[in-house]
């Protein structure tokens, strides 16, 4: 029966590096840092995935895309495990992926921002409002339109220099 040879976990990681995020197709699910573990048990490839936002509708699409991608590589048995901790943070988005986001027109998350969750109001009252550079023209003359944007992970901003609206990948 089992004529297909099982892939190595290393091989699975490289395949996953080609699975695009359904909403931001320029970065992959591994770029996003949401694949937490790959292991093989009893001929089943188990991929542990952590959600970005709890209610993100893309989570189940991502899981389906992973299953489909592995099936296309001939992997017969795949199981997706949802893992909550450690909880996902935008700090897991690598530098290369940040550059891809910027070129795609999305301002990447602030490096220092993730740890400040829970003190947002306090930091703003202290004058610490975040400076977000426009992904098109690079200007830091930008303003927040809304903390909540087109998807759960993004905020809506506007550039006062080139006048274009843009998405900012907000920190959690």
């Amino acid at each position: 029966m089992a004529t297909t040879t099982l892939p190595s976990t290393e091989q699975v990681w490289t395949w996953l590096a080609d699975v695009p995020d359904p909403e931001i197709p320029v970065i992959s699910v591994t770029d996003l840092g949401i694949v937490r573990d790959v292991r093989i048990e009893d001929e089943t490839v188990i991929v542990a995935v952590t959600p970005t936002y709890s209610g993100c509708p893309a989570t189940s699409i991502i899981e389906l895309d992973i299953e489909t991608a592995l099936a296309r590589q001939g992997v017969e048995k795949v199981r997706i495990e949802r893992r909550l901790s450690p909880s996902w943070t935008t700090d897991w988005i690598g530098d290369e992926a940040r550059e891809k986001l910027r070129q795609y027109g999305i301002a990447p998350p602030d490096r220092a921002g993730a740890s400040s969750a829970g003190t947002l109001r306090a930091s703003r009252l202290g004058g610490g409002e975040l400076t977000v550079a426009c992904p098109r023209c690079g200007s830091t003359e930008t303003e927040k339109v809304s903390q909540f944007g087109s998807t759960p992970c993004k905020a809506a901003y506007r550039c006062k220099s080139c006048l274009e609206p843009f998405d900012y990948f907000k920190c959690i």
Partner: peptide, 17 residues
């Protein structure tokens, strides 16, 4: 604790707004 850790980050945006 793991559910709370996840939700806390999101709710910090809710209360801020």
């Amino acid at each position: 604790a793991e559910i709370a850790t996840k939700a806390f980050k999101e709710v910090s945006y809710h209360v801020d707004r």
